[in-house]
Amino acid sequence: MKKVVLDDKAIDRALARIAHEIIERNKGTEKLVILGIPTRGYHLALRLQNKIEEIEGVHLPTGAVDATLYRDDLGIKKDQPSLKKMDIPISIDGKKIIMVDDVLFTGRTIRAAMNALMDFGRPLAIQLAVLVDRGHRELPIKADYVGKNIPTSMKEGVKVHLFETDGINEVVVEPAQEAKQG
């Protein structure tokens, strides 16, 4: 039985708050670049770009950072994860990167994405924004901006559905299914 933990409105409010927090914490938008982890992290990145533009009137460079080629489980998983798009719109040297993903879980995707980013240059800083933090970290990684903390058991699955990819905006917790990669 699935449980909706965030609906359309709640997701929108969470993103609006995160947008404000990003601006507040960085004292504006100078040097900021938003990079989402495909697929859903990228769409969340585009939404944050819009929110920040509504607040500050600044259109931040926004792109995608695909962590697939840097994963640590390529020889372990039965199916090779399909490659997504890498789209770094400008040089990231000296920039403050806001990395965006839908669910923060083990932290391994974020580790891989940071390694990928380092191959493109030397950012001034990397900050992490996630819609959901479900716990169970396996690496010392922590989000700077969190839409909602959702304590889960390892057996539960957390699914983020976005209008752009799934036709609906919601975050659901599904009991006892294979743990989602995070």
Binding site: D66, L69, Y70, K85, M86, N115, F120
Partner: peptide
């Protein structure tokens, strides 16, 4: 997807 790797300055991924 792999085409992008060859366009980078550092043309290498650890895969």
């Amino acid at each position: 997807s792999f085409k992008e790797v060859s366009e980078r300055e550092i043309k290498k991924v650890p895969t």
